[in-house]
Design a protein around this nucleic acid. Sequence first.
DNA 1: CCTAAAATGTAATCGATGATTACATAATGG
DNA 2: CCATTATGTAATCATCGATTACATTTTAGG
Lengths: 217, 217
Amino acid sequence: MPARQPSKPRARRPRSEARPYHHGDLRRVLIDAALQLAEEGAEVSVREAARRAAVSPGAPFRHFPNRDALMAAVAAEAQRRFRTEIEAALDEAPAADPLLRFRAFGLAYLRWAMRNPAHFEIISTGRYFARGSSPELTRDNAELIALTEQMLSGAAAQGLLRSADLKRIQIAGRALVYGFARMNLDGHFPRWGVGEGEIERTAEEVIDLFITGIARR
Amino acid sequence: MPARQPSKPRARRPRSEARPYHHGDLRRVLIDAALQLAEEGAEVSVREAARRAAVSPGAPFRHFPNRDALMAAVAAEAQRRFRTEIEAALDEAPAADPLLRFRAFGLAYLRWAMRNPAHFEIISTGRYFARGSSPELTRDNAELIALTEQMLSGAAAQGLLRSADLKRIQIAGRALVYGFARMNLDGHFPRWGVGEGEIERTAEEVIDLFITGIARR
DNA sequence: CCTAAAATGTAATCGATGATTACATAATGG
DNA sequence: CCATTATGTAATCATCGATTACATTTTAGG
């Protein structure tokens, strides 16, 4: 790409007094508005996102062919944040013990899901946009799954596991964690203890129960 | 209630040739239409249900105050079918072994969820109507949960369990099964083996893995 | 029976939404 | 400097949930 002056502050040339006809980076602003809408528990509508961006109802369609595409972009952003947090947790986990890393993975997963329920929902449900509509998200998710497979085969190599059927263990582990996150999302934890701490502690216990179940002893 | 002739076939008195002004049992027909819509993968709209009942768009609101109420009724019906199948499976399970009954419960649960994904979604998600909007469904679900608690405490009494923390085991079990069902629903099983048999076999394996994990050996 | 009230359906309409089209304005590059 | 492209606006459409006024049928009480 040809080098260009990178600093020019977006042609700040007000026509008379108002904001410029062209928005700075509408695509980005729309995604952020949609993320915020979801976070607030409101249903994400294209029009409301446009409203928050102080732009006409038709403007978003210059950046996204339809609502699904916007939602896919929102999901991609949420997934990016999700992954960032998982990897940060793994960086702090002991490098040598695969089962402890597996545990840290599950904890970080549930912790994020508990604290960002709306975003987790958009990422996971596949009801907000056609599957395959966001290859970025699909690839990213596949990489996380591959990570868990590596941990499990590492654990098996060290003789830490009771069963050799890693595929089965992996699916069960995914189902357990995914199910816990979705139960929280879908209102199956009827106002538990005091605050969020209670539910996160339960998440930890459930993960430990699972790991104890698959570990050789 | 006063006894009345029960057989009169709904006052079949056509005004001239057309169907009667009053529908036979519109409420029931609307619920069935909505169930069918969900089953077909379409999104359930009040208007479409009205269309299928050959009735005006406003008619459904004589029977349901709003869309949520219709969805709640649909969920109640689906839950009734769900529960019927679970209880049938338990009737055929051995009465003496709590863990085998627990297994049969999980299998029936997942089997139904795999074969009626749209209905399971409506039952479980709580996104289609306000929580508490269908006390019938809530109570029914609570009873099923109580069933699993009885099985687990029975298993503990017979010394079949490794841990005494039944609450933890129960939540983990629920999360596992719920998660598996939702993974299927949310498209996280990318076109597995040949048909449905493959995924139901995997469900069985996962349940067995869990039960083996919590059982004393 | 008969008739008034209640139940149930229709027609018309409203506001919100996703989406499309024609048009306006700004940014960019030859 | 100007033409092409990118980006935003305005107007419009169909669909949906919901409400209201009105029509018809059923039902119950005298």
